[in-house]
C-alpha cells in the first residue's frame, strides 16, 4: 500500500514537472533567441550567444520602438481605467439596485458576450470612419471603454460585499456615489486588481481591431510591430525575439506584482 502511494506521488510530480517545463520553456527559448543570430535560431541553438546588443541596435534603428511602446502603454492604460470605472459602476448598479427591468437588461447585456467580434467589426469600422477616428488611438480606446465580461465579473464579486456597511453609511448621510467611491472601491481592492490584470492583458495583447483601425506606422502598437516583423520575406529572427521580449515584459511584471490579488479576486467572484 505504501509503495503504491509512493509511486503515485512520483507520477504526479513527473506530470506536473513536465507541464511546468513545457509551459516555461518557450520563455527561456525566447530569451536565448534574443542573444543569437537568425541562422542560429532556425538551427535550434539553445545556448546564449553574443548578439543581444546587435539585435537591439537593429530593432531600434529600423523602427521607432520607443514610440510604438508608448502607443501601446497609452492605449492600454486609458482602456483599463475606463473599463474598471464603467464596468464596476455597472456591476454595482445591477447588484445593489436591482429591479425587474434592470434584470432583463442585464440578461441582454450578458447575451452580447456570445456575439463574436467579427460580427461587430464591420459596423464598428464604419462608425469609426464616420466619427473621423480612423488611424487614431481615440477610436481604439473609445470602442473598448466597457467590457461585458468585467460587468459580469464585478457583479459576481459585489454579491459577497456586506450590505450592512452600505446601510450604515446611508444612515450616516453619505451620498450613494460617495459610498461607492470611498467605501466599496477601497474594500474591493483584490477584485479591482484582478480586473485590471484582465483588462490590461486583453488591451495590450489585442491585435485584430488595432490592425483594422490603425494604419500608419506612427500609430502602430507592439503587437502590430511584431506581426510586421515576422511576416517579412526574410524574417530577422533575433530581432523579432528582442521585440517579443520588450512586448511581453510589461505583462510579466504586472502579473508578478499583482499575482496574489489576481487569484484572490477570481476566487472571490466565483464564491456565489
Amino acid at each position: 500500500m505504501k509503495g503504491k502511494l509512493y509511486l503515485l506521488r512520483v507520477l504526479q510530480y513527473a506530470f506536473l514537472l513536465s507541464c511546468f517545463i513545457l509551459a516555461v520553456f518557450p520563455f527561456f527559448w525566447m530569451v536565448v533567441g534574443a542573444t543569437n543570430t537568425a541562422v542560429d535560431i532556425i538551427k535550434g541553438k539553445i545556448s546564449f550567444g553574443n548578439q543581444l546588443i546587435p539585435n537591439l541596435n537593429r530593432l531600434f534603428s529600423d523602427y521607432d520602438v520607443t514610440g510604438i511602446f508608448w502607443n501601446s502603454c497609452k492605449i492600454s492604460l486609458l482602456t483599463v481605467l475606463g473599463q474598471l470605472l464603467f464596468s464596476s459602476m455597472a456591476g454595482y448598479g445591477f447588484e445593489l439596485f436591482s429591479s425587474k427591468t434592470r434584470e432583463r437588461i442585464y440578461g441582454v447585456v450578458l447575451l452580447t458576450m456570445m456575439v463574436p467580434f467579427a460580427a461587430l467589426m464591420i459596423p464598428l469600422f464604419r462608425l469609426i470612419v464616420s466619427f473621423n477616428l480612423l488611424d487614431n488611438h481615440a477610436g481604439l480606446i473609445l470602442t473598448s471603454l466597457v467590457s461585458v465580461f468585467l460587468v459580469f465579473f464585478f457583479r459576481q464579486s459585489f454579491k459577497s460585499f456586506p450590505k450592512e456597511i452600505i446601510q450604515a453609511a446611508r444612515v450616516d448621510g453619505a451620498g450613494e456615489f460617495r459610498i461607492f467611491c470611498s467605501i466599496v472601491v477601497p474594500a474591493m481592492k483584490a477584485t479591482y486588481a484582478a480586473a485590471a490584470i484582465y483588462a490590461f492583458m486583453t488591451s495590450w495583447n489585442s491585435y485584430m481591431w488595432p490592425l483594422i483601425v490603425l494604419q500608419s506606422n506612427e500609430q502602430k502598437t507592439m503587437q502590430l510591430l511584431i506581426s510586421t516583423l515576422s511576416s517579412a520575406y526574410f524574417p530577422e529572427y533575433g530581432v523579432i525575439m528582442t521585440a517579443i521580449i520588450i512586448s511581453t515584459l510589461p505583462m510579466i511584471c504586472i502579473f508578478f506584482s499583482l499575482q496574489k490579488h489576481f487569484i484572490h479576486g477570481i476566487t472571490g467572484s466565483l464564491k456565489q
Partner: peptide
C-alpha cells in the same frame, strides 16, 4: 434613480458600440 445612474454610462457605451453594430 441610483440603479439607472450607476449603469447608465455602461449602457450608453454598449448601445453605441455593441447593440448598434449587432
Amino acid at each position: 434613480r441610483y440603479g439607472w445612474f450607476f449603469i447608465s454610462f455602461c449602457l450608453i457605451l454598449l448601445a453605441l458600440f455593441m447593440l448598434y453594430p449587432i
